[in-house]
Design a protein around this nucleic acid. Structure first.
Lengths: 121, 121
DNA sequence: TATGGAAATGAAAATCATTTTCATTTGTGC
DNA sequence: GCACAAATGAAAATGATTTTCATTTCCATA
């Protein structure tokens, strides 16, 4: 299993926001770093597993990554410009727990995203 | 330009929630409807343009479609066997509304899924 | 009822992100 | 130095989506 690659982390830091795997790869190439696309994908995935980065999807479906604090949170995403706000989901956590119990599900996780148009759009 | 295809709309109605283009296609095939995948994609796109359906992205990036205004519910999905239970999300609706208001978002929708292991798995 | 053009259709090819395969390289403990 | 596990990356495979392009269906009008 590939480990969280410090070179990839560094690129994400410098990118300072969201970047797709392809973008990370192109950036590293442009800077003369020798790395394979496969390794970029693997590194990003293990960073996601370790909760060092957040994944989201562009409107075209491409996955985009960003370093994140690691705390569990949800997103409010603008359909127009893609701006995202991290939000609290206390109500969701409770709801998920309740529902899981009601139907006898164990080992549960959940996703919850809100999407709409931000004030600017 | 392809027009909003009533057969595709009908499938989405019966699906009663989100369905991907591929799923719509497979469903129609299974029911003996003769239609091309290309046409499914085009119909869905024009339905989106006309705001008759909403698009979202699954976690794997696949686009999923749902009739706007249709009955709205959430899912409890088993990671083991794939069984899904439709559940109520009253708490979620409230949460989404509150959050949207707080950040000035308009025209909002949301997704929320819970996944875990069902009693049998 | 013909007929001509516009819109709709779909099969097959192209595209593009992502994943898988697999052989090679690198690193680490002994 | 040696063996073995982990990491790497090139190339092929995958899978959704889009594009191309030739054919078919509609529909208005002669």
């Amino acid at each position: 299993m590939s480990r969280s690659n410090p070179r990839v982390v560094s690129v994400l830091e410098r990118a300072g926001g969201f970047a797709s795997a392809q973008e990370v790869y192109r950036l590293m190439q442009r800077e003369g770093e020798s790395i394979g696309l496969t390794t970029v994908y693997r590194s990003l995935q293990s960073l996601v597993n370790d909760k060092f980065v957040d994944v989201l999807r562009r409107e075209d479906g491409e996955a985009i990554y960003r370093l994140c604090g690691g705390a569990h949170h949800h997103h409010l995403v603008c359909k127009g410009c893609g701006e995202t706000v991290e939000i609290e989901g206390g109500a969701i956590e409770k709801w998920a727990k309740t529902m899981a119990q009601e139907f006898g599900f164990r080992d549960v996780g959940h996703t919850a995203e809100i999407f709409g148009l931000c004030p600017k759009c």
